Simulated scan of single mutants.
Amino acid sequence: MTSQTEIRVLEISPPESLDSPEAELFHGGVDVEFAIAKQERGYTDLCPSAEEVLVSLRSQKYYKKIRLAAVAGLAGAPRREDVLGWASIDLPRHDNLHLAEVHVAVRPECRGRGVGTALYSAAEELARDAGRTTILAWSDHRDAPSTRGDDDSGLEAEAILRPPTGIGGVPPDDAPTRFAVRNGFQLEQVGRHSVLPAPIDSEHNSALLSAAEQRANVPETYQLVTWKNRCPDEWLEQFAKLRQKMSTDAPMAGLEIEEEDWDGARIRDEEDRTLAFGRTSYVTAALHVQSGLLAAFTAIETVARSTEFAFQGDTLVIKGHRGNKLGQLVKAVNLARVLTENPGLKRIHTWNAAGNSYMLRVNLDQGYRPEDVEGEWQKRLQESG
């Protein structure tokens, strides 16, 4: 059995190619995520492929991205199978310069041996060295009440750990919960991961669309704008403003996240990276006719490595335009587009804050069902010494 004194934490350098000898450590880290997903979920949809991870690590303009691997043994060149766990440290470069986003993952059979502790200690040290004062982290929980459709409002305190908002909660005895609490994190918000099984009832989606069009007074008050992969130049700066608003208008509870800095150049950088990932992005936006401004948008991404699943990304309705069913409108239109072009889809994944009752209702109406719960954690380093 590996003890903590036999663990080395090494920084992973992006290899020149996935076939090169120096890629062993990199592949070992990616393998960790797949091993966890196969055991805990039974599918690997949410695990980026080695190709996708490499593309991400080569894109460092808006985030400094550091990856660490914990390996067994104190000497020698580590092999792929020697990687026990890995960690990511993402440091925003253009905004939120106080933040570090940290993720730690350990092979299921290697837990309880100090691997996660060694990785987190190294990650926190890197965050401190970078001058960051707040660390954000996330945890997944498969058997929380809301994933089973239960009403958790009557659960005793010892049965669920709630954030200060009192909305949602995570099981206090889950290993990720214990790890976060032990390392000084506070649960600030709970999110929900939901899945839309396909094929969907096209008549039901059409009915949702029709109701939304009537409420939004389409096309007199609002008109629809769609694009694929690249935002048209005429909407680029407006779309950047919507993305910037997304960073603060989505429920954040007590998470110390400041408004992000978005412009057309950042949109283009993200589009280039998405295409390099082998993903196809479908966007539908609502244009307010009188002002000539975009009032809402939603996005779905399909992936090249599989025709079976996709990701429902951000959806935003600008304040002042809410209450007009614009969220339902753009989501129904975009979903129909994606399913028409991707008839083999079997499921679409999405995430929402548990406190975002409007969007959760839109998703439930569209056919999404709870899959698991996400804990959103925060640690203030200046308070932890």
Rank of each mutant, 00 (worst) to 15 (best):
T221N: 12
Y63I: 07
V106S: 12
E213Q: 10
G168C: 08
Q382N: 14
C110S: 15
L99P: 06
V333F: 07
V330E: 13
I135R: 02
K228S: 11
W262R: 03
P172H: 14
G254S: 11
A137E: 05
T302C: 02
G154Y: 15
V181G: 03
I66N: 04
V55M: 03
L119E: 15
Q290A: 15
F239T: 07
Y43R: 11
R279W: 13
R266P: 08
F34E: 15
R148H: 15
A253L: 11
W138C: 00
S121K: 10
E33G: 08
N352E: 07
Y282I: 00
S357W: 15
V30I: 13
L294N: 07
D365V: 02
A130I: 04
F239N: 04
L326C: 03
D95M: 03
A130S: 10
L10Y: 05
E376Y: 01
G29E: 02
R361M: 08
S13Q: 13
K64I: 09
E259D: 00
R41V: 02
L326A: 08
W235P: 01
L196G: 00
G112S: 11
I257W: 04
W235F: 15
L293E: 15
P21G: 03
E383L: 12
K64W: 10
A286T: 10
G313F: 01
L242F: 14
E22P: 05
T177D: 12
R361F: 05
E341A: 10
A77D: 12
D249A: 11
N183Y: 06
G168K: 00
P163L: 11
R337K: 06
Y62I: 00
N205Y: 02
D173S: 13
T248D: 10
V317N: 06
E308F: 06
V170K: 02
Y358S: 02
R111M: 11
Q39V: 15
R279D: 13
L339G: 01
N229T: 05
D174Y: 04
A35I: 02
I66K: 07
